[in-house]
Design a protein around this nucleic acid. Structure first.
Lengths: 150, 150
DNA sequence: CATTAATAGTTAAACAGTTGAACAGTTAAA
DNA sequence: TTTAACTGTTCAACTGTTTAACTATTAATG
């Protein structure tokens, strides 16, 4: 008990992160409806946050190949959610931005998620939440360093 | 700062959980190699833990339709990792277990993950890890309740 | 300047994972 | 016994992914 049992830790972490991720995805999907897949929602969210970005940037952030981004962006472009604009200075580059429709859809999704979280957040006290997110972000950094050292 | 800003919280949580999940998946994939996809690894892990289960149970746990399980189990069955055994009492039911090959592959993957975690775990102190997992599991329970109340 | 490198993004084939609907076989309920 | 419920499968269609080859453009090098 005092010595950290790595096997138990790995089992617990994998089980809980897997479970939470599935449940959160399922809840979000119920809220958002069938307009948007989860990956499309994350893409919308990211572009909304940064305002404008490129395919290469998305591939870096999502840790997938550029061709995967092309496919996903094309599907969202077909739905009228995303705009592609060529850079006039460097004509290789294509800037991705949200259309009005994309922004609206994101705002609607965001509102529903906000309400959902609001209804759940009172189960935790603020210090606990704060510490949880801090550790989670620390884990993210540790993983980044590990990857950089490959 | 004292009042919890839900929007910021949601943004931070989604960003960090998305990022950690991607990085962890990528690290695990590097360790395990191309023998196994992440979902197949999780499936192997689950069946290893419970010993034996059914398609319906997997569908419940993974929160997907049964037809998705059939497809995935078939792929793993073709690789010789999983065995299907009909229940003689209720001939609708099929029990899923790991073959020797499945168990070996799981053990190998588990060892590599173990070593990986061992190399990262010293970045955190034990109390922090303990508290983090506790809160994560609490979140899992809260999400379960919320889903049950749908 | 001309040729060669590198970069940004796309396309196409192939695969894993997913849903939804229809179905077969089996068991339980009426 | 007929009807209803359940377990698992099949099939078509879709999203997301990788790999490899490709286009177009820009940067670097001689």
């Amino acid at each position: 008990m005092s010595v950290p049992n790595i096997k138990d830790l790995v089992d617990r972490y994998i089980a809980v992160s897997f479970s939470v991720e599935k449940k959160a995805a399922s809840l979000v999907k119920n809220q958002i409806g069938s307009d948007l897949t989860n990956d499309q929602h994350f893409t919308l969210r990211y572009i909304n946050q940064v305002g404008s970005c490129t395919s290469s940037e998305l591939a870096e952030v999502f840790d997938v190949k550029k061709s995967a981004i092309t496919a996903m962006i094309t599907r969202m472009w077909e739905k009228g959610l995303i705009q592609r604009t060529r850079d006039e200075n460097d004509r290789r580059v294509v800037y991705l931005t949200l259309t009005d429709k994309g922004n609206e859809l994101y705002a609607k999704a965001e509102e529903k998620i906000h309400n959902l979280v609001e209804s759940l957040i009172n189960k935790f006290d603020q210090a606990e939440i704060h510490q949880f997110i801090e550790t989670f972000e620390k884990l993210d950094n540790v993983l980044s360093e590990n990857k950089a050292g490959d």
